[in-house]
Amino acid sequence: MTQSERDLIDRSRDGDAEAFTKLVARYEDRIFRLAKRVCVGMPADADDVYQETFLTAFEKLKSFRRDSDLGTWLYRIASNLCFMRYRKKKREPFVPLLDRPHDHEDGEGPALSVPDRTPTPEETARKKELQAAVGEALARLPADYRLIVVLRDVEGMSNEEAAKVLGIGVAAVKSRLHRGRMFLRDEFERASSPKAGR
């Protein structure tokens, strides 16, 4: 943490809204992006989570330990707020995330090849399509899996950072991350399979 950030935190603790707004400016893009990805399909909720995160942080800043990371702390507040919304909404559509056998025996399908040359416009369009498919599949993951995938694979956090944000163990992060990734991978395969009729 830089000295200027420490100063801003100290002034914010004393209730200086202007100092805190400077901290907001440093972190708000990340927090909003997280809220938008996790509260997918509920844009008003994403706006609320974004605002509530910083209002809560401003109020609770006295309990923030100065030796910890402000970004992690803000992510944690935002993650909790996202969860609370989903708990209120009660039932999410159930997505089975069971172990699916990926048999070693079924070596039938063609291996995916990655072309080395400059992609053609068709290939670029196809890539966009597949990216959109992954984004849509992400929205269908249960919220807790989605949150972990977003923290790790969209925001680029390490397993350890994600574990800190969520207050769970690294092993728990990894097991949910792996299942979430495999669900998305299956959706990616489905979208990229030539048999995928439309």
């Binding site: 048999d103 079924d106 291996a111 995916l112 495999m182 998305l184 991978r185 990616f188």
Partner: peptide, 20 residues
Amino acid sequence: PCARVLASLECTLSALRELR
């Protein structure tokens, strides 16, 4: 089969990074 899983996982991860 493992090569395919790895290749499609790599594509999936790169698609996720693009969401950033």
